[in-house]
C-alpha cells in the first residue's frame, strides 16, 4: 500500500499585508495620469465596448472624406484636394460638435454624477490640476480627432504625388487651424458640460452652445451683404466659434472663408479674431476654476 505523498508545495501561502516602500510621484504625475485617463476615456478606452461605438463611429465618418479626397485626386490626377486642409475640420463641424458633445460630458459630467470629486481632491492634486488635466485631455482628443484625417489626406496626397511643398505647407497650416479650433471648442464644451451632472443635458447643451451662435451669425452676415456693407461681414464673424476659426484661417493661414459673398477678413479682423479666441479660452478656464472652487468633499 502506498502512502499518499504529501503535497507540501501545493499550499496556499497567505503573504499577508505588504507595505509599499516605492516611489510616490506627487501631484504633477497625478495630473499627467488624469490627463491620460481622460484622453483614453474620450475615445471609450478602458470602458465597456458600447462606450467605444460612438467615438470610433464618428471618427470613421470624420476620416471618410479625407480618404475619398485622396482617392479622387489620385484617380483624376488633379493636384488640388477638394477641401483645404485649413477648412477641413470646419467643413465637418457637425461631426466635430457631436464628438465634443459626447466627449466633454464623458470627461466631467460623470465625475459630478458619480460624486467622484471628493476622491480626487482628497489626493495631492488641486482643483487647478484637475481643470488643466481635463482641458488638456479634451483639447488633445479633439486635436487627434480632427488632425488625424488631415494626416491621412496628407500622406495619401504625397503617395498620389501631389506637389510636396504645397501639400506640406497646407498640412502644417491645417494643423495650426485645427489646433486653434480644438482649444476654442474644447474650452467652451468643457465649461458647458461641467455645469451638469446629467449626461443627456450635457450633450444637448454642448451642441446648442457651439452651434446656435453660428446659426445667428450667418444670416446676419447675409443680411449685411444685401445692405452692401460687406465690411461688417468680417466683424460679425467674431460672434460664433466657427466663424472665429474661419476668420483666423483665412487671415493668417492662406485659406478662404465660408462667409457670404466670399468676403475675406482684413488683417485687423484676423487679429481681433485671435484675441477673441484667446479671451474666450481664458474666460472658459477661469469659469471652470470658479466652478470647481466649491466642489470638494
Amino acid at each position: 500500500m502506498t502512502i499518499p505523498r504529501q503535497t507540501a508545495d501545493a499550499r496556499i501561502h497567505d503573504i499577508g499585508y505588504r507595505r509599499y516602500e516605492g516611489a510616490r510621484l506627487g501631484a504633477r504625475y497625478a495630473r499627467y495620469s488624469l490627463f491620460v485617463h481622460s484622453l483614453r476615456g474620450a475615445f471609450g478606452l478602458g470602458r465597456p465596448a458600447r462606450s467605444k461605438v460612438l467615438p470610433w463611429g464618428l471618427f470613421a465618418v470624420m476620416a471618410l472624406p479625407a480618404v475619398i479626397m485622396v482617392a479622387v485626386a489620385s484617380t483624376t490626377g488633379t493636384d488640388e484636394l477638394l477641401i483645404d486642409h485649413t477648412r477641413y475640420a470646419l467643413s465637418m463641424e457637425p461631426i466635430v460638435v457631436l464628438f465634443l458633445a459626447m466627449a466633454a460630458p464623458q470627461l466631467v459630467s460623470l465625475d459630478l454624477r458619480y460624486k467622484t470629486m471628493p476622491l480626487y481632491f482628497s489626493r495631492p492634486i488641486t482643483r487647478a490640476d484637475y481643470v488643466t488635466a481635463k482641458f488638456a485631455a479634451l483639447v488633445g482628443a479633439l486635436f487627434l480627432f480632427t488632425g488625424l484625417p488631415l494626416t491621412i489626406s496628407y500622406v495619401g496626397g504625397l503617395l498620389a504625388e501631389l506637389g510636396f511643398a504645397d501639400q506640406t505647407t497646407g498640412y502644417l497650416q491645417g494643423l495650426v487651424a485645427t489646433a486653434v479650433l480644438s482649444v476654442l471648442y474644447a474650452g467652451i464644451a468643457l465649461l458647458v458640460a461641467s455645469f451638469t451632472p446629467r449626461r443627456g443635458f450635457g450633450v444637448a447643451a454642448v451642441i446648442a452652445v457651439l452651434t446656435i451662435p453660428g446659426f445667428a451669425v450667418y444670416p446676419l452676415q447675409a443680411l449685411m451683404e444685401t445692405q452692401d456693407s460687406e465690411g461688417a461681414i468680417g466683424w460679425f464673424g467674431l460672434f460664433s466659434p466657427a466663424s472665429l476659426v474661419d476668420g483666423i484661417q483665412a487671415a493668417f493661414l492662406g485659406g478662404t472663408t465660408g462667409f457670404p459673398a466670399g468676403v475675406q477678413p482684413t488683417t485687423l479682423q484676423g487679429i481681433a479674431s485671435l484675441l477673441a479666441v484667446a479671451g474666450l479660452v481664458a474666460l472658459c478656464l477661469a469659469l471652470l476654476l470658479r466652478r470647481y472652487r466649491k466642489a470638494g468633499i
Binding site: 460623470l110 458619480y114 471628493p118 482628497s122 468633499i297
Partner: peptide
C-alpha cells in the same frame, strides 16, 4: 499623499 479618505456617500462610477 500619506492619508487615505473614504467618503460617506457613494462615489463610484457605475460603468
Amino acid at each position: 499623499a500619506r492619508v487615505g479618505y473614504m467618503p460617506e456617500h457613494d462615489c463610484l462610477p457605475a460603468d
